[in-house]
Design a protein around this nucleic acid. Structure first.
Length: 275
DNA sequence: CACTATGTTGGTTG
DNA sequence: TCAACCAACATAGT
């Protein structure tokens, strides 16, 4: 489900309901979501008594900053957070509950159970899994034109697979890669090290502006994504190619083609994006 | 009913 | 080094 704009929207909508809440009870109904510590009881015990001081984001990861630890959460395809009164009935796929000292609790819901949670000591987030190999967030200074060009020069993989690689830049997924490459007029199978400096700069610029616009629209709802208040995103109205197979290209009116790149469904205007 | 696809990523294989 | 494939899991569409 969520890429950077959706995770950022979840962060923003969630913050006002969980900041300064203290965890009193933790329930885990699907233990495989908990990756660290490996013992689920230990996971619960570390969280009890901890207060949520802030929620940050890096790429597609949410970072719940607690007093002594950071809870690092990845939503993968279908993960969702929402806050409920404790007496509200659980939804079908609620797998983890963080119950506060107030009347409310934070619930993690995940139809496909792919999501992950790690607890790490505060200050050691970047030194270990799951963030250690993560590249810069596109909104960070570290994602500079020079950095990006250097990384692309160093590989002859297709540009689409490189943009999906979270160790290069963290936050783009299938929707925003297709949209970015369309706006930059680059074919997804183009080899990264064959791109000119100008083309690389254009890809970087379009990636950042597409993500910014999607954040402003509250993310993209194609199938099931909603923010932590159950609201849909609006960016799906702005999509040029993703999910637009056989529809007219907004630039040239030729039909959008769907193909397979790196095993992922890939949407492209073959007239505007030449190989 | 069978088969495919899905906003992710980690591991294996060749 | 990299592409291809599979795995995790549930659901919707053809």
């Amino acid at each position: 489900m969520p890429e950077l704009p959706e995770v950022e929207t979840i962060r923003n909508t969630l913050k006002r309901f969980v900041l300064n809440r203290t965890i009193e009870v933790v329930k885990v109904y699907w233990g495989k979501i908990i990756k660290k510590p490996d013992d689920v009881e230990h996971f619960k015990q570390l969280l009890i008594g901890q207060t949520i001081h802030d929620i940050k984001r890096k790429g597609k990861f949410l970072l719940f900053e607690l007093g002594d630890y950071t809870l690092i959460s990845h939503l993968r395809m279908e993960g969702k957070y929402s806050v409920h009164y404790k007496d509200e009935p659980l939804k079908k796929h609620t797998h983890v509950i963080f119950s506060f000292t107030t009347e409310e609790e934070l619930r993690y819901n995940d139809v496909r159970k792919f999501g992950t949670m790690h607890i790490v000591k505060k200050g050691e987030e970047l030194l270990q899994k799951p963030l250690i190999q993560l590249g810069p967030d596109p909104f960070e200074k570290a994602f500079s034109a020079e950095y990006f060009y250097k990384k692309l020069k160093a590989t002859n993989r297709s540009i689409k697979s490189v943009l999906l690689d979270q160790t290069i830049v963290a936050g783009l997924g299938n929707i925003y890669v297709d949209e970015t490459l369309f706006k930059a007029r680059i074919h997804p199978l183009k080899k990264a090290n064959k791109l000119t400096k100008k083309e690389v700069q254009e890809i970087r610029k379009q990636a950042i502006s597409t993500l910014e616009e999607a954040v402003a629209q509250g993310g993209t709802t194609i199938r099931s994504y909603v923010n932590s208040q159950g609201e849909m995103g609006m960016f799906q109205q702005e999509l040029s190619v993703y999910g637009q197979e056989n529809k007219a290209c907004p630039t040239c009116d030729k039909p959008i083609t769907k193909m397979k790149v790196g095993g992922r469904g890939t949407h492209v205007c073959l007239n505007c994006q030449k190989l």
